[in-house]
Each structure stands twice: as C-alpha cells, then as structure tokens.
Design a protein around this nucleic acid. Structure first.
Lengths: 204, 204
DNA sequence: CGCGAAGTAGCCCGAATGGGCCATTGTCCC
DNA sequence: GGGACAATGGCCCATTCGGGCTACTTCGCG
C-alpha cells in the first residue's frame, strides 16, 4: 500500500513497483485517516508511508495501524523530515525509514526485507535513535516556553505571555537548557527547530 | 523536460504528463549539470525543475540555462523549500513556482500557461517576493557571523573563530539585526533558518 | 499517607547582549 | 580625486541572560 499526499509520488512509486513480478500495489491513500481505513480493508503485506500529510500525520497513522494490527509492516518514506519525526514514527512501530531519493534497487530490497521481517536500520540512524530515546522529555510548560524562545521572545515577554513571573520563566529556561544539553537560548532555539520540537515561526 | 533527483518523482510526473496528448516528455535529468546539457540538446518548451539537487542546485541550473537561452520557460517544482530558495530562483528567471502536492489539473494548467507565457505567480508569493527584493543583502562577513550565531556561538567565540575582536563581532551583529529587522540574536537565528540564509547546524 | 515531579517564585551575581556613537582602513566605482 | 560602503575596532551603559541556591504549593502515584 502506498500512502502519500503527493499524487506524483504515488504514481511514481506505483510505476516503479509494478515492474516487479513479486510486488503489487493493492491500495493507495493520500492521507493518514484514509490510510488507516485502507489498511483495515486491504491488509497489505507492506505499507510505504509518507510522514508529512495534511489530515493525519504519518506518525499518528502508523500508531493507529499498529494498534489494531501489531504485525503491520510499515516503511516510512521521507524526503527530509526532522529527526524528531523519524524517531517518533520508529517509536510508533515503523519497521524502518527510507529517503525518497533512494535508488530503485535499495528501495525494492527494503520492501522485501520489511516483508520478511529482516529490515535493518542504518547504523548511524539507529545510534541516534537510541540517544534520542535516552533523552528526557520536556514538560508541557517547558515546551510552551521553548516555543516562545524560538519566536525570539525575552524572558520577561514570555512571563507576560504566560502570566507568570520572569523568575519562573528563567527557571524553566534553565531546565530546558539542561534537558537539551545546550548552553544558551539561541542553541535551544536552533536545536528545537532541527529536532522538530517546535515548528517554524510564521513570518511577520 | 523533467529535472529532479528523485527517480520516483520523475516517473510520477512522466506518468501524469503522458496522459495528455499535447504534452510530451522529451528529456529527463537527475541533476543540475545534466539539466543544462540536456536543455541545450533538446530545447524543451517547458522545463520542470526541482530545487534541491545534489550536484548543482536548481537555482544555479536555472540561471545557467537562462543565461544561454533567455526565452527558456522554467517552472520550479518544489516540495517545501525555504522562501530564500524560491525567491532566488525566481530572480534567476524561473517563470513560476509550484508545490509538488498540487493536483493534476493545476499542474497541467501551469505548464500550458508557462508555455504560452501567461503564467502568474500566486498573489501572496508575489507580494513576499517583492518584499524580499527590497531587503538589503547581508555581506559575506555578516553571513559568516550569522552562521555562527545560528550555531549558538557567543560574540566572543565568534571573534575568536574569525580572528577579530569581540567589538567587531558586536558591530556585525548590530548590522545583521538591523538588516533582518529583528530584535535579538535568537530571532536572527530562527529567521535565518526559515529564510534559508544558512542551513541547519549539524548535530553534535 | 509520603514521596517526588512539575510549576511557581524569590535571591544574588557575573557575564553576555544590544544600542548608542565615532574612527580608521581598505576597496570599488564614478 | 571624491564618495560610498564593508570591515575593523573602540567606548559607554542599560538590559538581559545564565547559573546557583532555596522554598512553597499542587498533583499524582505507589
């Protein structure tokens, strides 16, 4: 099954896969919710799942499918998402992760390996995945503060925005810097963006 | 002509376009340099160009083609690049810009409009493009400093790294904040990332 | 019931930052 | 030659930030 909101990608993948006698595309979905429904209906051996989709993200869709069908084999097919997204979907039970610019041969190998249950993560990704799992989570409040840091607000402004004292904000910031293992708020902001902890601020 | 480093996308686009009797794919290229050569050889009416490619970026390829063939009609097909990239390629002479998740119909319309020379930028993009052109460029030195700001370095560290006094760095930072119209270095960092002025810092 | 985590808030203080303003040295272009 | 501008560096000063510390309340969980 193919899950991707880009029609072009679905057509392309179908074109590639249908040259292989042992592979058949039994279903397509252009969104996460549709993917969950289509999986239940068609029970594909392997699912190729995009991460970034409008209605329900690939992470949620993967989790939803795996919740109902624990032996579902889902390969994430991504262009260039953040580490955070990739790791979250692996956590959600995806079998592995491929870049969309992989050549035909590795793609087919990965699909067959996923079907056989022998798919292996690339070692560098696996290592960072382990590190990511070891990292303490930010609390909800801390994520709020981090979000405002990324927006470039000062501690005082953050305090006003959240209705707390500046000292409180400073404490949150200290904890955030500690958890992210960075030295200052600018590093916290870039790290947060890179890891996808918060999304890009909208332009003025 | 199709220019994209993703095989999947080329196959997909070809599949979509070949359903149309008035459209023919005469060439494909998987990189910028190959695109320039292929353009010279095939002279396609319209070129669909990806921005992010390994060897030569879409911006440079577009500029190179337009330099030799000023009436080349090039449509940029992008997934989610930064504004900076899009604006730079428009500046380089691209006729317009499409997201890869556009449906079949608008895509075909855009191709035909580009061929006829009547393609119009979406108004919101056009407006921001105008604003972008009005913005002063950062000098090379300022971009260096900005890059280090994004990496989370302090003024003193930046001075050491560049071999200048901290005071000089402070002056550069002041100019950068002024040109980017932001209040502090954290905003400068996030703005720079969003606009693609510098790329993401690699993780430790 | 008690313990810990999260959120709140205060204190102190050194360092970093941002904003004025000015000066000198190049270099490039008219 | 003169003008514009980038790059360099200096000074002063108010504000902000980061770090260390303590402390209280409120929760949920065992």
């Amino acid at each position: 099954m193919l899950v991707d909101d880009h029609l072009v990608v679905r057509v392309g993948l179908r074109g590639l896969l249908e040259t292989q006698p042992d592979l058949t595309v039994v279903a397509e979905a252009s969104g996460g919710a549709a993917a969950v429904a289509a999986f239940a209906e068609h029970r594909p051996d392997v699912t190729l799942m995009d991460l970034r989709m409008p209605d329900m993200g690939g992470v949620e869709a993967t989790a939803a499918i795996r919740a109902k069908f624990p032996d579902a084999r889902i390969l994430v097919l991504t262009t260039f998402e953040t580490e955070e997204d990739i790791f979250r979907v692996l956590e959600a039970g995806a079998a592995g992760c491929l870049l969309k610019n992989t050549e035909t041969k590795p793609l087919l190998e990965a699909i067959r390996a996923a079907h056989a249950g022998t798919y292996q993560l690339p070692p560098d990704i696996a290592g960072r995945f382990a590190k990511w799992r070891a990292m303490p989570e930010l609390s909800a409040r801390e994520r709020e503060v981090l979000e405002l840091i990324v927006r470039g607000r000062s501690n005082k402004e953050i305090g006003t925005a959240l209705g707390v004292a500046e000292n409180t904000v400073k404490n949150h910031v200290k904890v955030i810097l500690d958890k992210l293992r960075v030295q200052d708020r600018t590093q916290a902001a870039t790290t947060a963006l890179q890891r996808g902890l918060v999304s890009m601020p909208r332009r003025a």
